[in-house]
Nucleic acid binder design. Sequence first.
DNA 1: AACCGCAACAACCGCAAAGGG
DNA 2: TCCCTTTGCGGTTGTTGCGGT
Length: 292
Amino acid sequence: MGCRSCEKPKMNYRKGLWSPEEDQRLRDYILKHGLGCWSAVPAKAGLQRNGKSCRLRWINYLRPGLKRGMFSQEEEDVVINLQAKLGNKWSQIAMHLPGRTDNEVKNYWNSYLKKRVMQAQGGANPKSPAELTSMSTTDPSMSVQRHQHHHSSGSTTTSHDHDTNIKTNALSAAVPLTQQPFDQQAQQQSKNFVFSDWAPAPESYTVSAHWPASTASSGNVTPSHCGGAFGDQMSGSYGALPPHQDHQSSVAAAAAAAHGAAAGIAGSGYFDLLNMGDIYGGFSSTNDDLLF
DNA sequence: AACCGCAACAACCGCAAAGGG
DNA sequence: TCCCTTTGCGGTTGTTGCGGT
């Protein structure tokens, strides 16, 4: 695991929020060279950050395949159930939530779900996870009160979006996502599956418990030199962009299209993360000499 | 209009595990 | 086997924006 060839110049690392320029540098570097030794990334990408910070930024914000925006009812239920079952094993919980990072799950739990669960348990009869789940999908008051301030900063959804989500979530609670009518799915997914601003938003995204075990969690984007290809972490089925994708999806697609380095990510309207993996795998297999 | 409190999210910190020399 | 470095994870803190007063 050690990477002694990575020179580590002593420097005062920048802290705090990332600027768009820094994001761009990191994104460009990883698109060009693939994932490698994080400690070497800042110097090579021209960033005054430490490797750890770069890694976090990539995993939690820049990595393709990330969902942004509201947690769906299903996701919420998964978090509640798994938290009850596993405890605060956020990385493991995140594995069951495609496109969510452990940090996101953790934040969501700490800022919202925990209170709700405690509130529920504070009642006469502490509720089992199953009861909590059922409560979460059936109690309108619980849904309506949630997230009155949600996504106040740097986020892609608004309280209006949230209202929409509440409505669609009520529907999705009754009908499995995959069985919903196309329009309904598209509407819901176009709200919930908002990718990073540079990656296209998929329309058809397989939500299942079979997301690769090494996928959703932050840490599992294995550096190529450690035997894994980036694409291994990014599987899932994607279809054409919806005919009525929301503004954000359009922007995302446009951004991706503008981002030629993403080599075929956009343009066709299809986005297959396995192919994405091929892309990254290709980077790693051919550019290891650049990494080290 | 200014201030304050709260909520949500981003990012940092510290520790432990993993792996190479 | 030990040491050192990197990575991964979870807890915590910092920042930002909104709503209420």
